[in-house]
Design a protein around this nucleic acid. Structure first.
Lengths: 208, 208
DNA sequence: AGGAAAACCGTACCGCGAGTACAGTTTCGG
DNA sequence: CCGAAACTGTACTCGCGGTACGGTTTTCCT
C-alpha cells in the first residue's frame, strides 16, 4: 500500500465515524482533516468533493459488510450440512459479533445516507439501493435452500423473509444507538433466529 | 388556534419534510422560511435556535405517532375481545395505513435524529430515548396480555418481541426509502404479524 | 374604537465551513 | 537522481446559522 492510499484510508475511516455520529451534512471537512493531520489541499488532492468522499465511504462500507457476511455464512455451512442449521449457526455468529463490538455498532451507513438522500448524487443513491438488493438476494438464496428441505409452517413469501434480515438489523441498530444499549441488536438478531427456527422446524408437539 | 400557532405548525411541517429528506444539519433555515413565506426574523421569533426547532418537531412527531397507535390498538380491541386477535387486527390496520401513504412513509424522525445525534442537545436525545421506551412499553403490555392467554410456542422474551415492533418498522422504512418501494414497509409489518400469529397460535397440525 | 401585545419585516452584521485556484514543497519509487 | 506523487500555504468566494435591533402590521381584548 502506497503512502497516498494509506492517507485515503485514514480519511475514510475518520469520516465514516463522523458521518455516522453527526450525519453527512454536519460533518465538516475541516474537522476530518484536523483529525487526520492533513491540510485542506491534501484532502482535495484525494477527493474532488464531498460526494466523492461519500462514494468511497460507501464502497468501503459495502465491501466490508459483504466480506463479513461471506465469512459468517461460509462458517455456518462448514459447521452443518443442513441448510437450516447452517443458517441458525450463522445468525448466532452474527449476534455474537454484534455483541462483541466494544461500544456498540457504530451505525449503518446506508441508513445514514437514506435519511440524507438529497445530499447525494444519483450514483451514491444507486449504490445504496444496489447493495441492499444484493443483501436481500443473498438471504433469499439462503431461505430458498431452507424451504426446499423444510416446508414453512405458515405461508410466507421468502422475499419478505429475506428483506426482514436487513430491516431488523437496521432497526435494531437504531434502537441500540437511541437507547444507548448495544445488547438490543444482539437480542433482535436472536429473536429473528427464533422466528426462522419456528417457521421452518418440522411440525411437532413440544417435548413435555 | 391563533395566527402565531398556525405559523409555527407551518414551519414545523415544512422543516420535518426537509429534515427527513436531507438530514437536520443540511436543512437550511433560509430554505424553510422561503417555503413558509416568512422572513428570518419571523422564524427566530418562534424558535430561538435550530435546537428549539428540533425539540418541537420531535414533540409533534411523537404526539402524532402516539395518537396513531392509540387509535389502531383501540380499534383492534373494539373488534375482538381476544388479545391475540385484537393485536393481529391492529397490525393489519397499521399495514394498511402504511400502504395507503401516497408516496410512501416520509421517514422516522427518531431514526433521522439517531444518525445525527451529535447535532442535538441532551434534551432532544432524551426525548428520543423516552419515546422509544414508551412505545416498547406499550407493545410489551400487549404481548403480556397475549401471553397470559396463549403460551408462546418457543421460549421468547416478551421485551425483545416488543422491541421488534419498532425495529422492524424503522428498518422497513429505511428499506422502502432506499429501494424507493413503499410496499416493503407494509409487507414487513404483515410478516411480523405472521410471526406473532405463529408464535402464539395454539399448537396444532395444519389442516391438510 | 382604541390600545397593547403578538406577530411579524428589513437590514446590517459576524463567524464558520465548503469549495476553488494555484504556486510551491516534500517524499517516494524506479 | 529525476520525475511523479503526495502533499503544503495562502488567499479568496459564497452560503448558512445566528445576532441585534428598530420599525411595522395584525390581532385580540376591553
Amino acid at each position: 500500500m502506497g503512502k497516498g492510499e494509506a492517507t485515503r484510508e485514514r480519511i475514510l475511516e475518520i469520516a465514516e465515524a463522523a458521518v455516522l455520529a453527526k450525519g453527512f451534512g454536519a460533518t465538516s471537512i475541516d474537522e476530518v482533516i484536523a483529525e487526520a493531520s492533513l491540510t485542506k489541499s491534501g484532502f482535495f488532492y484525494h477527493f474532488r468533493d464531498k460526494n466523492a468522499l461519500a462514494r468511497e465511504m460507501l464502497r468501503r462500507y459495502v465491501e466490508t459488510n459483504d466480506r463479513l457476511f461471506d465469512d459468517i455464512f461460509d462458517r455456518g455451512r462448514q459447521l452443518s450440512d443442513d441448510p437450516l442449521q447452517a443458517f441458525l449457526i450463522s445468525l448466532k455468529l452474527l449476534a455474537e459479533i454484534m455483541a462483541d463490538l466494544p461500544s456498540g455498532h457504530p451505525g449503518c451507513l446506508i441508513a445514514s445516507i437514506c435519511y440524507q438522500e438529497r445530499l447525494f448524487d444519483r450514483e451514491v443513491r444507486e449504490m445504496t439501493a444496489r447493495s441492499v438488493q444484493d443483501w436481500n438476494a443473498r438471504f433469499l438464496g439462503v431461505f430458498e435452500g431452507i424451504a426446499a428441505v423444510y416446508p414453512p409452517r405458515e405461508p410466507v413469501d421468502l422475499h419478505d423473509l429475506a428483506d426482514a434480515m436487513s430491516c431488523i438489523v437496521d432497526g435494531a441498530i437504531i434502537m441500540s444507538k437511541t437507547l444507548n444499549d448495544p445488547r438490543r441488536l444482539e437480542r433482535q438478531i436472536l429473536l429473528f433466529r427464533s422466528f426462522v427456527k419456528l417457521m421452518f422446524s418440522p411440525n411437532q408437539s413440544p417435548a413435555a
